[in-house]
């Protein structure tokens, strides 16, 4: 699969979450996503970025534009936080340890085409999402 461009953005504080939303919006628009698909991937990014900042203690996000055979946008959120002990449980609707509605992880999964999560207790969490055009 051809990755046309990759960029990394820091994800430490709340303004970073807003900056990532903006960047994801720009890239998905450039890739020719429909307005609805743009909104879905931006919303998913917002959920995951917030998780990284609040629960992961900050981290980075990697944005990859995929071009060929299919056009898509892949986002990789990585932190060195405490990790998620029970991923299955965390993906369930309504699960929350913080102040959200408990829709963050599961909701983000429903908004994208591919969703992958690797989490090790004490080592950190890596969430990879892809939305195809």
């Amino acid at each position: 699969m051809a990755v046309t461009s990759t960029e990394n953005l820091p994800l430490v504080s709340e303004p970073d979450v807003v900056a990532i939303r903006r960047r994801v919006r720009e890239i998905s628009a450039q890739l020719g996503f429909t307005l609805v698909d743009q909104t879905k991937v931006v919303t998913a990014a917002s959920e995951l970025a917030r998780n990284t900042v609040i629960y992961g203690g900050g981290g980075i996000v990697q944005l990859e534009s995929l071009n060929g055979p299919r056009v898509g946008l892949r986002l990789i959120f990585e932190d060195k936080g405490p990790g998620i002990p029970d991923v299955e449980l965390a993906l369930r609707n309504g699960f929350t340890t913080g102040s959200g509605m408990g829709l963050g992880l599961g909701g983000a999964k429903r908004l994208v085409n591919d969703f992958e999560i690797v989490s090790r207790t004490g080592e950190g969490t890596k969430v990879t999402i892809t939305r195809w055009k």
Partner: peptide, 9 residues
């Protein structure tokens, strides 16, 4: 242009 779970809440 977006409402995520936090804004929704």
């Amino acid at each position: 242009d977006i409402v995520d779970s936090f804004i929704g809440r």
